[in-house]
């Protein structure tokens, strides 16, 4: 008798099979919006280099209703990305203090505290 193993193909809809795969695909999708926002920032730098009037029209574009909407959507996806990433950080960065592992909750809280501190610095620097 000869062997004749059967190989099954992975379906394109594999990620719909379980909630954990859907959540993963949404997390992957968030990078698209973070990419879009990064492109907006780069565009801002280019406009800044072009002078005052170019910069003013860039700011005006951001303040328009569609501009605000794009930023809100990007913020929503960036928040989802950050929250799910923070939840995973204890796996990637196990911390030991005096021979004892630091709890996952503490590692996650430190990340949130760092996020708040950086946001505060940015807001103060922006003069808000």
């Amino acid at each position: 008798m000869s062997r004749r193993p059967y190989t099954r193909k992975v379906r394109r809809s594999w990620w719909l099979r379980h909630r954990r795969y859907v959540a993963y695909m949404v997390r992957e999708l968030t990078s698209l919006f973070i990419g879009i926002y990064s492109a907006v920032l780069v565009m801002g730098l280019v406009r800044l280099a072009q002078g005052q009037s170019a910069w003013d029209s860039f700011v005006m574009m951001l303040s328009s209703t569609p501009g605000v909407l794009v930023q809100l959507v990007c913020l929503l996806f960036a928040t989802y990305h950050s929250v799910t990433w923070f939840a995973l950080t204890p796996k990637a960065i196990p911390v030991m203090v005096r021979g004892q592992p630091v709890s996952a909750k503490t590692i996650i809280r430190i990340h949130y505290a760092a996020w708040a501190a950086v946001s505060l610095v940015v807001l103060i620097a922006a003069g808000v």
Partner: peptide, 15 residues
């Protein structure tokens, strides 16, 4: 790509 499913299904709680 850090899906994390491997750790979810491990019967021996390896991560």
């Amino acid at each position: 790509t850090f899906v994390g499913a491997c750790s979810d299904v491990c019967p021996k709680r390896v991560d």
